[in-house]
Amino acid sequence: TTVVVGNKKYTFDNPEAAEKFAKKVAKKLGATVHKTNGTFKVK
């Protein structure tokens, strides 16, 4: 599962961990999490 934050990509074996990370980053940046085909995008 990939999490994309700006131009950085983070890969997780565990989708739950990926989602948690994405939400944490989004909260910090005041952004939102978008899920597309198993990829979480923070923007």
Rank of each mutant, 00 (worst) to 15 (best):
T1G: 10
T2D: 11
T2A: 10
T2N: 10
T2W: 12
T2F: 13
T2E: 08
T2S: 10
V3L: 02
V4A: 07
V4I: 14
V4Q: 11
V5Y: 04
V5S: 02
V5I: 12
V5W: 05
V5M: 05
V5T: 03
G6H: 08
G6D: 05
G6W: 10
G6R: 06
G6V: 05
G6Q: 05
G6N: 06
N7S: 12
N7M: 09
N7W: 10
K8D: 05
K8H: 12
K8E: 06
K8F: 10
K8T: 08
K9L: 10
K9S: 13
K9Q: 11
K9R: 12
K9E: 10
Y10Q: 01
Y10K: 02
Y10V: 04
T11P: 06
T11I: 13
T11Y: 14
T11D: 08
T11N: 11
F12L: 03
F12W: 04
F12V: 01
D13S: 14
D13I: 10
D13L: 11
N14P: 03
N14I: 07
N14Q: 08
N14V: 08
P15W: 09
E16K: 13
E16V: 12
E16R: 12
E16M: 13
E16S: 11
E16A: 13
A17S: 11
A17V: 12
A17N: 08
A17H: 09
A17F: 08
A17P: 04
A17E: 12
A18R: 00
A18Y: 00
A18Q: 00
E19V: 06
E19Q: 06
E19I: 08
E19M: 08
K20S: 11
K20R: 12
K20V: 10
K20Q: 12
K20D: 11
K20N: 12
F21C: 03
F21V: 03
F21D: 00
F21T: 01
F21I: 02
F21Q: 01
A22R: 01
A22K: 01
A22P: 00
A22M: 02
A22V: 04
A22W: 02
A22G: 02
K23D: 13
K23C: 07
K23L: 14
K24L: 11
K24R: 13
K24E: 13
K24V: 09
K24H: 12
K24Q: 12
K24G: 09
V25I: 12
V25E: 05
V25Q: 05
V25M: 09
V25P: 00
V25G: 00
A26T: 01
A26L: 02
A26V: 02
A26K: 01
A26F: 01
A26I: 02
K27I: 09
K27Y: 09
K27F: 09
K27P: 01
K27L: 12
K28H: 09
K28M: 09
K28V: 08
K28T: 08
K28C: 05
K28S: 08
L29S: 05
L29Y: 09
L29N: 04
L29F: 07
G30P: 01
G30T: 03
G30N: 09
A31E: 04
A31S: 06
A31C: 05
A31W: 15
T32K: 09
T32D: 05
T32Y: 07
T32M: 07
V33H: 03
V33G: 01
V33Y: 06
V33P: 02
V33D: 01
H34Y: 13
H34C: 11
H34A: 07
H34S: 10
K35E: 09
K35P: 04
K35Y: 15
T36Y: 12
T36M: 12
T36K: 07
T36H: 13
T36W: 09
N37W: 04
N37R: 05
N37A: 06
N37I: 04
N37L: 06
N37G: 11
N37E: 11
N37F: 04
N37Y: 05
G38V: 03
G38F: 04
G38A: 04
G38D: 08
G38Y: 04
G38R: 04
G38H: 07
G38W: 04
T39G: 15
T39L: 09
T39S: 14
T39M: 15
F40S: 03
F40R: 02
F40K: 03
F40Q: 03
K41R: 12
K41V: 15
K41L: 15
K41A: 14
K41Q: 15
V42F: 04
V42S: 02
V42G: 03
K43D: 15
K43G: 15
K43N: 13
K43C: 12
K43R: 10
K43L: 15
K43Y: 15
